[in-house]
């Protein structure tokens, strides 16, 4: 009951957040140099043609009027049409959000597993060679530019070894998967098409690995630091001095306490990933949200940028809500 109230209260927070960011983006993109209308009219267009195009998109009206009209449309669920491609923005979003989400959820999951296992392993052997190896490896992964790392992985695993599929698309063209949820690994399973499912996972392999390698380092460092802190605490030392079995010590006295500090950092990393996956999307021709938004930004495609910002803001609020709930579940001292 209290939990539901808490969640509702946090979700209500979305309203001021979304209004704030939408006003901000609305004004900022219009102040930026560059005019989308000039990019879409033919070179031979006269001043009158350009004015006509402006009117068509409502760009001739005062800023406040434009914003109110936009807000009205959004509340009715109409996110507008792309100025450059004339496709409905909402349709693009429903197609592309699951694409990118699928990519980053798997990457985040993989990174978390590596970071938690590696971080605790390193902390238990602090100062020994294996500890240094784990930390240096994570740091090296963090220092590589992700597009370069993606290309190297493609060269090795596709070109040289032939273990990975070509870096184009999410599934082998031999399969056709009608979208249900938009998450291809889920859809193939729902349709019971195991070979297609395998193919989808196969295509996810390299982009997920690339992203995971890049984001593992900060997570691993944080896990290692908090595991070290737990190992050095009186509560752990007390459990150890009472002769508990290794497994009990590890899971009941170290693991959970170590994880308590993780959700906040993980939420931050995960939130960044939604926009940060764009380079990897380009390398693997993923056609995801990031690629679409970047193109929209370069062409000053106002409706696209505005919709993208709303999606990212919502995503952050939800991710941090989940992180806070996880934290409260892990730590009995935290009350929601």
């Amino acid at each position: 009951m209290r939990l539901t109230r808490y969640i509702v209260r946090r979700l209500l927070l979305l309203i001021p957040v979304l209004i704030g960011v939408s006003v901000l983006t609305f004004v900022l993109i219009r102040v930026l140099p560059g005019d989308p209308v000039l990019l879409i009219v033919p070179e031979t267009a006269t001043e009158a043609d350009i004015q006509q195009a402006r009117e068509r998109f409502g760009l001739d009206r005062p800023l406040a009027a434009q914003y109110l009209a936009y807000l009205g449309d959004v509340l009715r669920g109409d996110l507008g049409r792309s100025i450059t491609t004339n496709t409905p923005v909402a349709e693009q979003l429903t197609r592309r959000v699951p694409l990118t989400l699928e990519l980053i959820v798997y990457a985040m999951g993989l990174a978390l597993v590596i970071a938690v296992v590696g971080g605790i392993y390193a902390a238990r052997r602090a100062g020994r060679p294996s500890d240094h190896t784990a930390r240096v490896a994570a740091l090296a992964g963090n220092s590589l530019p992700e597009f370069w790392l993606g290309l190297v992985l493609v060269l090795i695993f596709y070109q040289a070894l032939g273990w990975a599929p070509p870096p184009a698309g999410r599934i082998s063209p031999l399969f056709s998967v009608p979208p249900i949820t938009g998450f291809i690994t889920v859809d193939t399973l729902l349709q019971g098409d195991l070979p297609a499912s395998f193919s989808a996972l196969h295509h996810l392999m390299l982009p997920v690995l690339t992203l995971a390698i890049v984001i593992t380092a900060p997570l691993l460092r944080s896990v290692r630091a908090s595991a070290l802190e737990v190992i050095d605490s009186d509560s752990y030392r007390c459990a150890e001095s009472h002769g508990l079995k290794d497994r009990v010590l590890l899971f009941a006295y170290l693991f959970r306490l170590t994880l308590i500090r993780l959700p906040t950092l993980a939420a931050l990393v995960f939130g960044n990933l939604l926009g940060g996956s764009v380079l990897v999307e380009y390398v693997f021709s993923w056609q995801g949200l990031g690629q679409w938004a970047l193109r929209g930004l370069l062409l000053r495609d106002y409706p696209v940028i505005q919709a993208y910002v709303l999606v990212v803001a919502t995503f952050y609020v939800l991710v941090f809500l989940i992180a806070d709930l996880l934290q409260a579940a892990l730590d009995p001292r935290v009350e929601v």
């Binding site: 009186d234 752990y236 001095s241 009472h242 002769g243 290794d246």
Partner: peptide, 22 residues
């Protein structure tokens, strides 16, 4: 491991922070 506890068991100073918090 068996000695710790069954041989000699230590009551830590400041018990509140020596009990596992979670």
């Amino acid at each position: 491991r068996q000695h710790r506890g069954a041989g000699a068991a230590l009551c830590f100073q400041t018990p509140r922070s020596s009990l596992s918090p979670a």
